[in-house]
Simulated scan of single mutants.
Amino acid sequence: MPEATYDPVSMIKPRRKITGISAVLLPYLESGEIDRDSLRSHVARTAEVGITPAVNMDTGYVNLIDESTFIEVLNIARDTLSGAPFVAGAFVSDQPGAGFDAAGYQRKIDLIQEYGGTPVIFQSYGLVDQAPAQIVESYRTIAANTDRFIAFELTRDLLPFGAVYDLETYAALMEMLQCIGAKHSSFHREPEWERLQLRDQKRPDFKIFTGNDFGIDMVQYGSDYLLGLSTFAPDLFAKRDAYWAAGDPAFYELNDQLQYLGYFTFRSPSAAYKHSAAQFLHLRGWTKTNLTHPQSPTRPDSDIEVLRELGQRLKVID
């Protein structure tokens, strides 16, 4: 194994203000309709604690919902936030072997920008199943017609059309000023440390949003975050972030408790964490049911008592 070119200990950045983005769960009712009231409330409470809401992400079933729901969620986010910032997933559905659908991406980007959001560019087969140079050109096409966007690397443990890019491709993303940052969801620390070092050398204003729900302390090293785990408890993530900015050692204990929640809820199959989120939010009294999109994988009912205990340890569930 080649020797690492970075020293994680020296990369720790104490007392840093963390930028948090939370992928808001899309809740459902017994009728199969989305729970609009609970969605509005959760978007609002996320913003109120200083974390930017992200809608139509994996936690919002962006690969499963139809376009009318996609647009309705954008409308709810815009109306709820009254001009406050939010981000939203720009997803294009395709199949293995498809070409890059520039027009499809642009249509989703235009919709998100029309509603006041910043696009997060979801990967697709047509985007990632290209040579690295072609992937870079595809992002340049996006950048040419977009004011600002967030890129996204996604492990195939979550979705089958994900990919983690080589560092040369990642460096090319940083050269596009319209690309203000990128979410990194490999679920491994080493490639994220490499990206942080590259960022510090090449473009310090570029945001690396950890998507590592198994390593949420990556914020210590200079990552910000765009997490699904934070939708369980945006209030506690905001408290944890404030502890770090203040240099308060209470950061570590709260981070440990939140990390245990992440280990449990993101276990295999990882995609079922959305049902874990629904169960936890229902226990908190923040949703009317613990139901998910009907095509999304589920957890057993026996998880509920474990989640209840975790919530009691965190002092958010009776």
Rank of each mutant, 00 (worst) to 15 (best):
residue 239 K to A: 12
residue 313 R to I: 12
residue 39 L to F: 13
residue 187 F to Q: 12
residue 208 I to D: 00
residue 52 T to C: 12
residue 31 S to F: 10
residue 255 N to T: 12
residue 185 S to V: 06
residue 107 R to G: 00
residue 275 H to G: 01
residue 111 L to E: 10
residue 162 G to S: 09
residue 265 T to N: 00
residue 21 I to E: 00
residue 126 G to W: 03
residue 151 A to F: 02
residue 81 L to H: 06
residue 184 H to R: 04
residue 311 G to H: 06
residue 210 T to F: 07
residue 263 Y to F: 15
residue 177 L to A: 13
residue 165 Y to F: 14
residue 258 L to D: 07
residue 18 I to M: 09
residue 6 Y to K: 00
residue 308 R to K: 15
residue 90 A to R: 00
residue 54 A to S: 12
residue 232 F to T: 09
residue 203 R to L: 05
residue 10 S to P: 04
residue 302 S to W: 12
residue 28 Y to H: 11
residue 60 G to A: 11
residue 270 S to W: 01
residue 47 A to L: 06
residue 122 F to I: 02
residue 269 P to V: 14
residue 15 R to C: 11
residue 229 L to R: 00
residue 267 R to D: 15
residue 100 F to M: 08
residue 293 H to V: 10
residue 250 A to Q: 15
residue 199 R to S: 04
residue 243 Y to A: 11
residue 215 G to Q: 07
residue 36 R to F: 08
residue 203 R to I: 05
residue 246 A to T: 08
residue 169 T to V: 15
residue 122 F to A: 05
residue 178 Q to I: 03
residue 133 A to P: 04
residue 268 S to L: 11
residue 241 D to C: 00
residue 195 R to H: 12
residue 176 M to K: 02
residue 122 F to V: 00
residue 180 I to P: 01
residue 98 A to Y: 07
residue 303 D to R: 04
residue 36 R to A: 11
residue 38 S to V: 07
residue 170 Y to I: 13
residue 296 S to C: 14
residue 74 L to S: 01
residue 196 L to T: 06
residue 43 V to S: 05
residue 10 S to R: 14
residue 267 R to T: 15
residue 177 L to W: 04
residue 138 S to G: 10
residue 278 A to R: 08
residue 162 G to K: 01
residue 257 Q to H: 09
residue 247 G to I: 05
residue 84 A to D: 12
residue 68 S to W: 06
residue 309 E to G: 06
residue 274 K to C: 01
residue 27 P to M: 11
residue 81 L to Y: 02
residue 7 D to L: 12
residue 312 Q to M: 15
residue 254 L to T: 05
residue 14 P to K: 08
residue 122 F to Y: 14
residue 241 D to G: 03
residue 100 F to A: 05
residue 120 V to D: 00
residue 131 A to C: 10
residue 85 P to C: 06
residue 313 R to L: 11
residue 65 I to P: 01
residue 298 T to H: 03
residue 167 L to Y: 12
residue 204 P to S: 14
residue 87 V to T: 10
residue 20 G to P: 07
residue 238 A to N: 10
residue 51 I to L: 14
residue 144 A to M: 12
